[in-house]
């Protein structure tokens, strides 16, 4: 899969080729931001915010059958050590507080995937009194529709996110100090106001 430019390519599966490409990158003395982007692409650590049934598909994605680890992503435990948050399912008004707090705890560069219809626009609970849309709380990079989406769809979303990161999304924030291409949404009201009292 490697060519002389290496532009717009995502490296999947073949470890030998990836290692060769990595050696090339180092020997040719490429710019630091390219190395950061390349490194972040293959070290996405998703933390799962399992609020409903999409958690089963999330688990299956990293199970033996679909094995999304081969794309360079592995679920991790603490939001303070991860760079990707996968929102699985409905976000209630109480959970919105937890979502925003975990998002702000995550170190830069960070990304978000919204998985399932509920995370897109409410889904089944579209007119419930107790839900918020995740895009009102944090900036979402990739949306995965479906109720629930297939594990392949989530794996595809990770490959899609890798394309975004490869374009310079990671180095932009941590090296150049620029803003994300998707701005953080301005909150209409503090989702944690009930908690602070």
């Amino acid at each position: 899969m490697s060519n002389s430019n290496g532009e717009g390519k995502v490296y999947v599966g073949n470890l030998d080729e990836s290692a060769e490409r990595a050696r090339e990158l180092l020997i040719k003395g490429l710019k630091l931001d390219k190395i950061i982007d390349w490194g972040t692409t293959f070290s996405l650590w998703p933390i799962d915010l399992t609020t409903s049934c999409c958690g089963c598909e999330f688990a299956a994605t990293w199970g033996p059958r679909f094995d999304a680890e081969r794309y360079g992503a592995l679920p991790w435990l603490s939001p303070r050590q991860t760079n990707l948050i996968v929102i699985e399912g409905t976000i209630t008004k109480k959970m919105a507080c937890a979502l925003r707090v975990s998002w702000e705890q995550m170190p830069n560069p960070k990304f978000a995937i919204a998985m399932g219809t509920c995370a897109l626009d409410g889904g089944l609970f579209y007119n419930s009194y107790n839900i918020v849309r995740p895009w009102q709380i944090i900036p979402v990079d990739v949306y995965v529709p479906g109720c629930p989406p297939r594990p392949e769809a989530l794996a595809r979303a990770i490959v899609e996110l890798q394309r975004i990161v490869k374009k310079g999304e990671a180095s932009k924030t941590i090296l150049r100090g620029m803003a994300r291409s998707k701005p953080t949404p301005k909150l209409k009201e503090d989702p944690c106001s009930w908690w602070w009292g």
Binding site: K93, Y126, N127, Y129, N130, W194
Partner: peptide, 22 residues
């Protein structure tokens, strides 16, 4: 118990409470 206090103030299970997009 389950709802956030601002939501519980709406008393959402009462018949007179109508959800917005209905």
């Amino acid at each position: 118990l389950l709802l956030a206090p601002p939501v519980a103030e709406l008393k959402p299970m009462r018949k007179e409470f109508v959800v917005k997009e209905e």
